[in-house]
Amino acid sequence: MRSMRYWMYQYKRTWRGSITTSFLYPVLYLSAMGLGLGSLIKGRVDGVRYLDFLAPGLLASTAMQIGGNESMYPVMAAIKWLRTYFAMLATPLTVIDVLVGHLAWIALRLLMVTSIYLAIMAAFGTVHSPLAVLAIPVGILTGMAFAAPIAAFAAAQQNDTGFSTIYRFGLIPLFLFSGTFFPIAQLPGWMQPVAQATPLYHGVALCRGLVLGHPGLATAGAHLAYLIVLTLVGFVLAQRTYRRRLVT
């Protein structure tokens, strides 16, 4: 927890820009894709307006991006460039403190971003159930399901070239094909199980169910379990790679 304070100090410097972005992106995406592109889609998508279909998916996707961004370059910087982790380890903090502190900070960022997203969604009239509030913790969980394993990966890297691979073959394809913009039933048959296996699919499906008010208990449980397991596995791996990297 104490190490989380560092990231809060860091954030003092950039919060204005960051908060503005957090407001601006949902507005831009929802108007361009939801209202603009959505106006061309006459029929209903999965039984709802396209805007209603899209909005909760975007929330989950944004959570994924925040989780990914915050656990790549900042982790590398704290190890190599600014060596912040080493400064922390010269104090009573332990490796676990350092890791938990950083992940806690990412969770806090996710809380801010998903809350703002939900507020903007409400302003666009896309919130159809009080259950939508639960999209915030689910968004955080979705972000963490990426942040924890990616932090584990980042701590094992010698330089940042691996990160562009994660964006190119991980985050961007997931963003496009995990059911955010169209139901995965539109994908060719062989791709559907692939899409279903990705973490973002589960985050998107769960958020959509909650915001539209029909989560379906069994499937919701399965989505939740998937995301929790991935987060925990990531955390265990991160513990290992952090220890290997930071304690010599």
Binding site: Y9, Q10, K12, R13, L82, A87
Partner: peptide, 14 residues
């Protein structure tokens, strides 16, 4: 430490 681990983007006081 041998190499400074200061945070270059924060102020001296911070």
């Amino acid at each position: 430490p041998q190499e400074d681990t200061l945070d270059l983007e924060l102020t001296v006081l911070d």
